[in-house]
Design a protein around this nucleic acid. Structure first.
Lengths: 163, 163
DNA sequence: TAGAGCTACTGCGATAACGTAGTAGCCAAT
DNA sequence: ATTGGCTACTACGTTATCGCAGTAGCTCTA
């Protein structure tokens, strides 16, 4: 059980068939979830990734690009391009970082928060559906995912090593 | 608890702090895992997504682009471009689909299987690390992720609705 | 307090993702 | 057999991702 195996029943092409390991499960679930969320929040003008990012920014105001990059395991250049895009939309503002002149802090503008709120309303029913489909297991699932995140993230800073 | 909340401790920028809901957990874990796998399998010439796709193809030979698209929740044009790339590498071959003249079946060539094997060997230690970090919870986690996938996927075909 | 070595960010260029708008083959219903 | 409506795939063009290489500001050492 140390490397990927074929789906449960040979020849099956059922989209819900896994590959027998946790990492693939995540990949599959994440793709499905992202597609779902993309479709749901689309009228807000954000996509799933952007909604996620706006959400962190909404919760932790004054975050540096590097912090954001670490948080979402993305390379700095990707974050850079996100920032530029968000700024162009008038959703995000750069504020000087008092602790470091090379850097700056990101914060949502009022209109950024509004967009986030709109997206949040579109997102809610999706989350609701999933949560109720999970039933009482929802809480466990949340906890297990946190553990999983810790397990995966334990060997940090893999980002950028894809040189 | 019907919409995203801020991280556990206000102002925290810890990359492991979640946003308090299952869907974000997945997003975060998946990003971390993908970065990890990207870095690990990189010498094989594949990235994490490609490795995943090669894995399905290895397990279910004779899959149509549409089946693949459903399986990975990707739009058809994305799959199309994957196929073209894989074919250019000599890793995938199209065979006529006896059941449908508009379509074709995908299968890995010998060299595609070789690339997949190489990537698999690079991937194994990553999976091993995660699995052992999870300890006995690994099996539960796997099962919970399957449930989660079912819960998310229950409202199918969101892909393509992002028009 | 100089300056070597780091770290934070970004311009640019290459490649990838994927929406739009087709074409070709399928499957009724006539 | 014909045709109207579907579905499978794809060329093309736009936008996004992200590696490389460069600049500015930080920090430590002497």
């Amino acid at each position: 059980m140390s490397r990927p195996q074929h789906p449960d029943s040979a020849g099956s092409t059922d989209p819900h068939a896994g590959l027998g390991n946790v990492l693939f499960d995540i990949w599959l679930v994440s793709r499905a979830a992202t597609a779902q969320i993309d479709a749901a929040v689309q009228p807000s003008g954000l996509d799933a990734d952007e909604f996620a990012i706006y959400s962190v920014l909404a919760g932790a105001d004054g975050m540096t690009p590097t912090e954001l990059a670490n948080w979402m395991a993305a390379p700095p250049t990707t974050v850079s391009s996100y920032v530029k895009r968000f700024e162009r939309r008038g959703h995000v503002r750069r504020v000087a970082n008092p602790d470091d002149g090379r850097s700056y802090l990101l914060e949502l503008t009022a209109s950024g928060r509004a967009a986030h709120r709109t997206a949040g309303e579109l997102f809610a029913p999706v989350l609701g559906r999933v949560t109720s489909a999970l039933g009482p297991a929802a809480a466990d699932t949340h906890r297990l995912l946190q553990d999983l995140h810790a397990a995966v993230g334990s060997s940090e800073d893999a980002v950028g090593d894809r040189s």
